[in-house]
Amino acid sequence: MLGTVEFPDIEPPRFVTIVDDDPEDREDLMDQLRDHNIEPRAVDGRYGSDIDRLIADVRATGSPFVICDHRLQIKNLASFNGSSVIKALGLSKHPAMLLTMYQSTNRLELREARADVPVVVSRHDFDVSQLGTYAEICRREFANDPVDARRAHRTLIGIKGINRTYNHTELYVTIPNWRPDDAIILPVACIASDLVPQLEVGDYLLGDVNVGAKEEDDLFFKNVNEIMKANEVTGS
């Protein structure tokens, strides 16, 4: 993400609300916040699929910033995941960040949601002193002036491999002006659905990607809706 240098003097919010299904993790976060003189507030209960009720409860805490765990299903807090919560809060421009373990099972899930989730931090890297920066990243995003790492540019996406299995397709792609030599998995959910069946290795897609992202997990894909077939590229 961003170093302290870019936002040197941003005060962290005074109240922060935590959404986490695991009571141990929740208590731990709350203690960390208290250590930095931030008043923690928590949302607890069983929400099932009622995301509106959860959002209402979060807003009722009155905190200017929300920390939300990604996997809320494990201990049955909700049947949806944290990125849906961040997305819903974002609709009303409520700053919020996602905490995750970045387990392999949810990395791709996160990539799909990443365009609507400004701040994702792994639990290991979480640093309370950076909360001000995280909040600022959200604020800039809501003000339509995203930080460099979150700014989308129309970009070529090269198809390097396609793995079609029983019930899903996996695409390995490179982004020439991000890291031309690193193939990453692009979830098909990020691509205009009519393009998926015609994709072949060697084709290029065009889409909006935040090529200023430092890490693979920070990349997002939007409007991937144009294709350039391999045989349209001269010299290949």
Partner: peptide, 8 residues
């Protein structure tokens, strides 16, 4: 743990 499956 499936998304959107509810079982209290």
């Amino acid at each position: 743990l499936r998304d959107n499956f509810e079982q209290d």
